[in-house]
Amino acid sequence: MSAIIQIKNVTKEFKVLNRREGLKGSLKDLFSRDYKIVRAVDNISMDIEQGEIVGYLGPNGAGKSTTIKMMTGVLEPTSGEILVGGNIPYQNRAKNAQEIGVVFGQRSQLWWALPLIESFKLLKDIYQISDSDYKSMMHLYQSLVDIEPLLHKPVRQMSLGQRTLSDILAAFLHNPKIVFLDEPTIGLDVSMKSKIRILINALNKEKNTTVILTTHDMGDVDALCRRIVIIDKGKMLYNNDIEHLKGFFGSYRTLKIRMDGDLKQQAEVIQKELPDFSVSADEEWISVLVDEEKSKVMEVLNQLQKSHEIRDMQLEEISTEDVIKKIYEEGVE
C-alpha cells in the first residue's frame, strides 16, 4: 500500500522585499524592486503511512507552517511533488479539503455565535456526512469525552480548552483520512492538555486517522508520537522513530548531586575536573550531563566522591525535550 502522504523534494521559496531601516528607508522601499529569495522549505521528502501519528517539530520559523500549508493546499510548492490521499492539494483544494481535517490551536474554525451542536449540523451538511456516520461519530465522541455540557454552548462563550476540544472534534467529524493539528495544546492547563492527548490517541486508534502534529510541547510528543520529523531553516534534520531519537547523540544521562556550600562555585570546580562533560547548577542540584560512551555514570560518581562530600544524588535519563533542544542548538553533524 502506498503512503497516504507523499512528499518528494519539495521546496518553497518566497520573494521578500529587502527592507531598509528608518523612515527614509521605508520611503525608498516604496519604489524598490530589491527582492531577495527566502527558502522557507528546502528539498524535503517524506512518506507518511495511514494511521501514523507524526510529530512535526522545529523551532519558530523553521518552515513547519509552510509545509502544513502546502499539504492542505493553501500554498503551492515552488518545486517538488506533494500527494495527499492521491490528490495534489493545491490543484484540487476542495477535494483535498473533504479528506482532511485541520485545527489551528489559536484560531477556531467554528461558527463563533453558534452552539457547538449547530456547528456540527452545518458541518454534516457541508461535508455531506450520512445520518448513520454522523450518529456513530457522535456516539464515539460521547464515549470519549463529556460532550453534553459543550453541545449547547455558543463557541464564543467557551474557555480556550473547551474551544480547542470542540475544534478537534469538529475536525474529526467527517472521518477524514488525515488530520493536521497545529499546536493543539498551546495555552492550555495541564489537565486539559492530558484530556486532549487522550482524545487524539483514542480517535487515531478508533478511526485509523493519520495525524500530523506540530507542537512545542514535548509532553505532546511523548504522549502521542511514535515518529517525529524535525526541520530547521527549511531543512529536514531528523525523520525516524522516537526511540531512535534518544540514542541519537550517544547515550546521555544526567547525574545530579547535592553538596554543601555555594553550588555555583562548586559547579565551576567540578567542570574543571570533568572537562568532557557539561556541568551546570541550579538552586538545589549540580547537574552533570554524562556521555556514557566516554565513561560510565558510576565512574564519574566515584571520581567525584574522592574529592567532594556528596550528600545526595539522583540519576535522570535524557528527556525528549533535551534531545530536541540539542538538535535545535547544534544541528545534526
Binding site: G73, A97, Q98, I100, F104, Y127
Partner: peptide, 13 residues
C-alpha cells in the same frame, strides 16, 4: 491577522 486561513479548509466554494 491571518485568520482568513480558517476559510481555506472547507470543501465548498
Amino acid at each position: 491577522s491571518g485568520d482568513f486561513i480558517k476559510y481555506c479548509f472547507r470543501p465548498i466554494n
